[in-house]
């Protein structure tokens, strides 16, 4: 898992690549939550993300809840595999996927 960030005022874009599984999800959780301090809108670019496990989903759900109280969060460039995971788990209804 590699995370790259692009901050623009209170807007933050995070580029994810590799995979986020049970091993990397805790890091992702810490990293993400520290990054969104003072952030109003969060964008997660998943173009280079291969796949994610349920551990990642739990992080996403947790962050989504935080961002719901602020300007919001969206997920972009979702590949077929991840889109299917979002669909199966009902996350498609929770996340803003573009």
């Amino acid at each position: 898992m590699i995370i790259e960030k692009e901050k623009n005022g209170t807007d933050l874009v995070i580029y994810l690549s590799g995979r986020i599984d049970s091993i990397t999800a805790p890091n992702f959780d810490v990293e993400l939550k520290s990054s969104i301090v003072g952030i109003e809108t969060l964008t997660l670019d998943m173009e280079k993300l291969d796949y994610m496990s349920s551990a990642c989903l739990r992080v996403l759900l947790s962050v989504q809840k935080i961002m719901n109280a602020r300007g919001g969060m969206k997920v972009i460039h979702v590949n077929d595999v991840i889109k299917e995971i979002f669909d199966i788990t009902g996350f498609s209804g929770i996340l803003t996927i573009e």
Binding site: R19, D21, S22, Y51, S53, S54, V81, E84
Partner: peptide, 15 residues
């Protein structure tokens, strides 16, 4: 398409 799905499954079961 199937390979990452299997990886996800292994992840879920093993964890």
């Amino acid at each position: 398409r199937i390979k990452p799905q299997i990886c996800v499954v292994i992840d879920e079961i093993f964890s």
